[in-house]
Amino acid sequence: QTIHNGDQTYHYDNPEEAIKVAQKLAKIYNLTVTVKGNTVQVH
């Protein structure tokens, strides 16, 4: 599972963990989380 947060990319073995982290980032920075296959984008 990969999270793209602007210019930063994070890799997680656990998809659920990746989505949790993405949602935390989204709340902190007031962003949107988009899940596309194995990629979670925060923008």
Rank of each mutant, 00 (worst) to 15 (best):
V42A: 02
K36L: 13
E16W: 12
P15C: 14
G6A: 11
V35N: 01
Q8I: 14
K20P: 01
T2K: 10
Q23G: 05
V40D: 00
K20R: 14
N5S: 12
K24L: 15
Q1W: 05
Q23V: 09
K24T: 11
D13N: 13
T39I: 12
P15F: 07
I19N: 09
V42M: 02
L31V: 09
L25D: 00
H4I: 10
Q1K: 10
L25N: 00
L25S: 00
T2I: 11
Y29Q: 06
V33N: 00
E16M: 07
D7H: 15
T34P: 00
A22G: 05
V40Y: 01
H4N: 08
N38T: 07
Q8N: 08
N5L: 12
E17N: 04
V21Y: 10
V40L: 06
T32C: 15
V35W: 02
Y29P: 14
Y10K: 02
Q8R: 15
I3W: 11
T34L: 06
T39L: 06
L31A: 06
Y12R: 02
H11D: 04
A22H: 01
V33I: 08
N38V: 05
T9S: 06
V33H: 00
G37R: 02
A22S: 03
Y29D: 04
K36G: 03
H4L: 10
V33M: 02
I3P: 10
T9I: 15
N14F: 04
H43I: 08
T34W: 05
I19A: 10
A26W: 07
T2E: 12
H43C: 13
D7G: 13
Q1P: 12
E17W: 08
Y10H: 03
I19Y: 13
N14A: 04
T34E: 05
D7T: 15
E17L: 10
L25V: 01
T39S: 07
I19W: 14
N5H: 13
N14C: 10
G37Q: 03
K24Q: 12
E17D: 09
V21T: 05
V35H: 02
N5Q: 12
T9M: 11
T34Q: 04
Y10V: 02
A22N: 00
Y12Q: 01
Y29V: 05
V21P: 00
K36I: 14
A18H: 01
T2A: 12
H11K: 08
D13W: 06
A26E: 09
K24H: 12
Q41P: 00
Y10S: 02
P15N: 09
E17V: 11
I3N: 11
V42Y: 02
Q8H: 15
I3F: 09
E17F: 07
K27T: 10
V40I: 10
A22W: 09
T34K: 04
L31C: 14
N38E: 02
T39N: 04
T34A: 03
Y12V: 03
K36A: 08
L31G: 03
V40M: 03
N14M: 03
V21C: 15
T32E: 07
V42K: 01
A18L: 03
H43K: 07
V33Y: 01
Y29F: 10
I28H: 08
T39Y: 06
Q8V: 14
N14Y: 04
T9D: 03
I19S: 07
Q1I: 13
E16L: 08
T32K: 09
E17M: 13
V35T: 02
N5V: 13
V33L: 03
I19G: 04
Y10L: 08
H43V: 06
E17S: 06
K20C: 15
N38D: 03
N38G: 05
T39M: 10
Q8C: 15
G6H: 14
K24Y: 15
I3A: 10
V40S: 00
G6W: 14
T32A: 07
K20N: 06
A22T: 01
Q23M: 13
L31E: 02
H43A: 04
T9Y: 15
N38A: 06
K20A: 13
N5G: 10
H4K: 08
K20H: 06
K27M: 13
Y12K: 01
Q41C: 15
Y12I: 02
Q41T: 15
Y12P: 01
T9R: 05
T32R: 07
A26N: 06
N38I: 04
E16C: 11
N5C: 15
T2L: 13
L25C: 06
L25G: 00
K36E: 10
H11L: 07
Q23H: 09
Q23L: 14
T34G: 01
V21E: 09
Q8W: 15
Q41G: 02
L31F: 07
K27G: 06
Q1N: 10
